[in-house]
Design a protein around this nucleic acid. Structure first.
Lengths: 160, 160
DNA sequence: ACTAATTTGAGAATAAATCCCACTTTTCCA
DNA sequence: TGGAAAAGTGGGATTTATTCTCAAATTAGT
């Protein structure tokens, strides 16, 4: 439903170009295509997904470049990297949400929800302080079952 | 310092054998060696570590069997599996601690601390309920820096 | 002990991610 | 603007943790 409006995507593409030059990196067609592809997605995606999406924009994008660009984007805070313990990672466009978000993973439909988790930073700090450490980042993952699945035999989150 | 006492290890080995038969699995030398090796460790270890430790007990243990036994142990709740986003997993003998523990990972010395995290289950539930999900398990990871490193240039956790 | 079913070891296979290197593109300043 | 130096790229080989395969060995119940 909430598709990204052209103005928005144009603006964020500018932000990306500024970001690259600021980092002393060059603006290339491939990097722009990868960035655009990533920010076209509303949901989580894998590196392989991103390769496909990027190629729809620029046929020449290679797997190597996707894997080279991903750490640039995640370390720059433009993309969120999510590891739910599978043998590949998920990524999500960071559209400036709060940093205090937890991942709730539905074990019935495999969907990942990004849910606000108030005071998570404060809570993580209180835990880390017990061993004299200063948090840099924290992540809370909740593996869960759908309540309605038990009752109705249907997971309302799964692809209907 | 706190080495495991013979009585303890004997008792837990019995528990393990009961566990296996209860699951309809056979008690083999290899599985026993792997179990003992795991419960000799006070700290986190990798699958490869466990292969080495197991071979010190029973030379014949193979990598395949270690990898086959690990899911039996983790799914049975005897071992805790920890994924801190590297390309291999860590494991830890579950000696019946509280389930409410967070992993605090020191980014200076790479050490992983298992720290009590009160009310984590309650907190995870409150987050999951926002999307109508019922938590099965939750994990909180805090990536952190050592406070004393900044001040003294020394990470007191690192191998001195 | 005997037999059927389970388990094992060794090495091949898998798959995500990384590396290599000749070739292309970008940048920038003369 | 042009042209060289630096940075970036594609494609395929490589790496590495983990999984698979299958013949041989071991276990558990008779």
């Amino acid at each position: 439903m909430d598709s990204i409006k052209p103005e928005d995507s144009r603006k964020s593409r500018e932000t990306f170009k500024e970001f690259l030059t600021q980092q002393g990196l060059r603006v290339t067609n491939q990097r722009t295509a990868i960035f655009d592809a990533a920010f076209n997605q509303e949901e989580h995606f894998t590196a392989e997904d991103l390769l496909d999406f990027s190629r729809e924009i620029d046929r020449s994008v290679s797997r190597a470049t996707v894997y080279r660009t991903l750490p640039i984007l995640t370390e720059g805070g433009l993309l969120k990297e999510i590891d739910v313990g599978r043998d590949y990672k998920f990524y999500l466009a960071n559209r400036g949400q709060k940093t205090e978000q937890a991942q709730v993973i539905c074990q019935d439909c495999e969907k990942i929800f990004e849910i606000e988790a108030p005071f998570m930073e404060w809570y993580a700090r209180s835990v880390a302080q017990k061993v004299g450490l200063e948090p840099v980042s924290q992540r809370l993952q909740v593996h869960a079952h759908c309540i309605r699945l038990k009752e109705d035999g249907i997971c309302p989150n799964s692809d209907s």
